[in-house]
């Protein structure tokens, strides 16, 4: 089952095609990383998923509903933390909690205070006087207290200290583990999200250039280091080659469908690729070469 599905999604801003045929499938219970460089269309995609923007082409389904006509019950199942979100600086945390909790029927006050304690936050503090990390933590905890089934985060850990980031990401995993929540997270800091995401979509120029389970991707996509004398077509015969180049006396071939058995007779070393390297492989390919999923 997928919580979110988009098909051939297109959105223009004037003449600019910000989202250009986006296909996404976010499985229930996943932590899904929507990954791409700044300006590639991540935030626009999220706005389309939230029903804040109308698509020009294509469809979006969230919990099998059209975001433009969400029922209030469905809307309450979604928690959303935007990139730059804030509360009035003068507001106390207690007031903010009072206002926010009035919108939701299944408000979890116990979880709220348990989580706020981790950052030494209490009701009479004023939002404007919190540190950047505390502000961010307060906002995510407010959303967690709504007990959403789907959490959508836009650049959740940007600009935060390492320890805050770590706690933030660990919280996401705990939520998925304890409450079967699904998380969609847009980010361009790959080393960060690598700890927590289990599905990724690499976005380039408004469309996905790769979409896969991360474990699966790491198992399939490998870089083979071969002697320069190796015939290129010999590699292409055995594997789907994503890129091939020569560097310091070695032929480097990145393949999309690695199987140890397919190596037989080839003299080569196999390199694993981490999320950042995988992203670069797909992001530097020309989009005309097709989508590998």
């Amino acid at each position: 089952m997928n919580v979110i599905e988009t098909r051939d999604l297109v959105r223009y801003f004037g003449a600019v095609r910000a989202v250009s045929g986006m296909d996404l499938a976010v499985p229930t219970g996943s932590i899904f990383g929507l990954l791409g460089e700044n300006g590639c269309g991540k935030t626009t995609t999220i706005n389309l998923i939230m029903g804040a923007l109308v698509p020009h082409e294509g469809t979006v389904r969230v919990f099998d509903e059209d975001p433009l006509s969400f029922t209030p019950a469905t809307r309450a199942r979604i928690g959303y933390l935007a990139d730059e979100m804030a509360l009035p600086g003068w507001m106390t945390l207690g007031e903010a909690i009072g206002v926010q909790s009035s919108f939701f029927e299944q408000w979890d006050n116990d979880a709220l205070w348990r989580l706020l304690k981790r950052f030494d936050l209490h009701a009479d503090q004023v939002f404007g006087q919190l540190s950047k990390g505390q502000k961010r933590w307060f906002l995510i905890v407010l959303i967690v207290a709504q007990q959403p089934d789907l959490l959508i985060l836009d650049e959740p850990s940007g600009g935060l200290d390492v320890s805050v980031r770590r706690q933030f990401l660990d919280l996401l995993v705990d939520l998925v583990n304890d409450r079967d929540m699904t998380v969609l997270m847009a980010s361009h800091i790959l080393s960060d999200v690598e700890r927590v995401v289990d599905h990724v979509a690499f976005v380039k120029a408004g469309k996905t250039v790769c979409q896969s389970g991360l474990e699966d991707l790491k198992t399939r996509v490998k870089r083979l280091c071969l002697p320069t004398g190796t015939h290129r077509h010999e590699i292409e015969k055995r594997f789907t080659v994503l890129s091939m180049r020569e560097q310091s006396g070695t032929l480097l071939a990145t393949v999309a469908d690695f199987e140890p058995e397919s190596l037989s007779g080839l003299e080569c070393r196999v390199e694993h690729l981490n999320l950042e390297e995988l992203f670069l492989v797909y992001n530097t390919r020309r989009t005309e070469e097709g989508v590998v999923s």
């Binding site: 219970g29 996943s30 660990d170 583990n177 289990d198 474990e215």
Partner: peptide
């Protein structure tokens, strides 16, 4: 599966696999 997923901070589907 759940307990190990919590401990390692990874998705339970990964541990199940």
């Amino acid at each position: 599966v759940r307990a190990l997923a919590r401990e390692l901070k990874v998705n339970p589907t990964t541990v199940a696999r």
